[in-house]
Design a protein around this nucleic acid. Sequence first.
DNA 1: TCGCCCATGTAATAAGTTACATGATTCG
DNA 2: CGAATCATGTAACTTATTACATGGGCGA
Lengths: 184, 184
Amino acid sequence: MALAHAILAALVHQPRSGYDLTKYFERSIGFFWNASHQQIYRELAKLEAQNWIDSEAIAQASRPDKKLYHLTPLGHQHLTQWVAEPCEAVAMKDDLLVKVFVGSLVSTSVIEQELARHRQLHSEKLATYKTIQQEYFQAPRQLPEVDLFPYLTLRRGIRHEQEWIDWCDEALELLTKRSDDKPV
Amino acid sequence: MALAHAILAALVHQPRSGYDLTKYFERSIGFFWNASHQQIYRELAKLEAQNWIDSEAIAQASRPDKKLYHLTPLGHQHLTQWVAEPCEAVAMKDDLLVKVFVGSLVSTSVIEQELARHRQLHSEKLATYKTIQQEYFQAPRQLPEVDLFPYLTLRRGIRHEQEWIDWCDEALELLTKRSDDKPV
DNA sequence: TCGCCCATGTAATAAGTTACATGATTCG
DNA sequence: CGAATCATGTAACTTATTACATGGGCGA
């Protein structure tokens, strides 16, 4: 159900094609709910069958035709209802932490390298988010409500990536101190 | 594949039954990789078929018999290999953020209440983690390597919950300021 | 001319959730 | 006497991932 709602959410302010949605799920909403194009097309078919969205065929010259999907009043209603429902806190699910948990199985340097690599990945993501923040959200207190909510999700992304980086630093420091004590 | 490896990781230092594993996935490893008992039993059957684990029937008086699963040398080898492999950063996937993203569809107080509730959930989890930290990991720099790695995962849990709380506070502050400006 | 962008899908497999199913013991 | 704990599973269903499939236009 959750992907369905994420798609409806992506259609609230404008119609989009499957392709557009796929792109949108690589930025924006995709920062906290990702989906592949295969999933999206399948879900769009279901949503249309339920009449939560409808589609409009757009013929294009020098490009494949596309189907623009719109939220129907029914879809809008279901989405609104869902937003108002309480939800559970999601559990973390992270490969890297499982690996770190049994990190003693391999040489410490293997874990150190992996932590350094992830630190890099997260700082790149952080940089992306900060760029978006500077470009679109300069004065958060003056934002109209419609934009304030997406801003909050961006803030969560920024905090999340920062938290990752800080943890990697803490972990690397502890591991490095240790390998200094007992050199290989 | 990931659940399989999480189970192998849970069996590294001691054999466990399906039931034990289920409990273990409610604490410890479960803090960053959760699984239901149904999933666990299914996966155990697969792992045993592959000879990555083997089982020993334990007859018990006044309790149902149980099967204790041990990691085989083959399983140990596969786990070690997997730990040494690099992995991708996992994407966030969070219902609440989708809801916040389109929070303008509902009354601000609905979102505020939900944020307050989640703040509460996360501070409870944080308290749990901090208790574990105090009980088992008082002097991290003196920890033997085998315990240092689990300690690092606990630190991640603590930072993660703290980050959640901080974000909830930031979001609530911004929303509250706003609803003060324009009372309903 | 090679690869990327646009554009949409199907099929097979893997993973996860929900519901169903059983049954003894122990504690309040 | 009822609820929780111990203990193990099957079945149905929903979601997600990976691989396969097609094909024109456009820029380097």
